[in-house]
């Protein structure tokens, strides 16, 4: 399939031979494939072997379009590349919709572990690795087993099973392979089962019927977002420990207030968009 890209609001750059006129061009949005988009013009492109299609309505680079030429087999699919989707899903789930600060997930171990910077970094890194692997595994189970067999009601039990098996398995493997590594990260592996993010990611992927790229991106992005949140929070709490905090606010209350401040600053990422 030849290349085609959205050039600007109304123009598409298409690789191929120039069609005889706008009337033979059939351009649709993939979601509304039965509705033709009006084509106002077609001209040859900047390079030989390409042409530019002008559409009446506004086109968006994030949308999926289908283009074909009546009377020929030529067909183009115009969609953002897998890489673009991946990057935008990661940015969105790590910063704009950070799971800790805007979805409030993973709070249980968030407050427990964010007191020391070292442990925060350790748990953050371990979580990213385990989260991605179990997210992908849950996606495989959902896409090839639960979905096709309409066993969606087993989702909760299946996903918690996958997470538990995975954490337990990873623990055993790391213990056998590298004792030093296990001593350092073993405790974090166990903490991960108390983290709702690891369960929320597959559930969200299943509800949104995500493809592999989105599922992988969400697992990685949520993990990175969690690690970032943990790191920021631990830095702030180490400092607050030195500060004279009123008696009733000591400990958890002030941690929550800090967390609220972070959440407010993360609001600054809203509206950020890539591509």
């Amino acid at each position: 399939m030849a290349e085609a890209t959205v050039l600007n609001d109304h123009e598409l750059l298409v690789e191929g031979t120039l069609p005889i006129g706008p009337e033979v061009i059939r351009l649709v949005r993939a979601d509304d494939a039965d509705i033709l988009i009006d084509i106002t013009g077609v001209k040859s492109g900047p390079e030989p072997g390409s042409f530019i299609v002008t559409a009446a309505e506004t086109l968006s680079g994030q949308d999926h379009y289908l283009l074909n030429i009546a009377g020929s087999d030529a067909a183009w699919s115009i969609a953002p590349s897998a890489m673009a989707i991946l990057v935008s899903v990661i940015i969105s789930s790590a910063l704009i919709n950070n799971f800790v600060f805007t979805r409030y997930l993973g709070l249980c171990c968030f407050f427990g572990v964010s007191r020391k910077r070292d442990t925060a970094i350790g748990l953050g890194l371990t979580y990213v690795v385990v989260g991605v692997l179990s997210g992908v595994m849950a996606w495989v189970v959902q896409t090839f087993a639960l979905g096709p067999l309409s066993l969606d009601f087993l989702q909760i039990i299946a996903f918690i099973g996958i997470v538990a098996c995975f954490v337990q398995g990873a623990d055993m493997i790391v213990k056998k392979l590298n004792r030093v590594l296990h001593q350092k990260f073993g405790i974090f592996l166990m903490l991960i089962t108390t983290n709702c993010i690891i369960l929320a990611v597959p559930l969200l992927n299943a509800t949104n019927e995500a493809g592999f790229t989105e599922a992988f991106g969400l697992s990685l992005g949520s993990g990175l977002g969690f690690a970032l949140a943990l790191f920021l929070m631990s830095c702030a709490r180490e400092r607050v420990d030195m500060a004279p905090v009123p008696r009733v606010f000591q400990g958890l209350p002030v941690a929550f207030i800090l967390c609220g401040l972070f959440a407010m600053s993360f609001l600054g990422f809203s509206g950020l968009s890539f591509f």
Binding site: A33, D34, L66, N68, D73, A75
Partner: peptide, 13 residues
């Protein structure tokens, strides 16, 4: 209810 059927790039509504 609306349905679409794609056979290659051939569409039925």
């Amino acid at each position: 209810r609306r349905y679409l059927l794609w056979r290659g790039s051939q569409l039925k509504i």
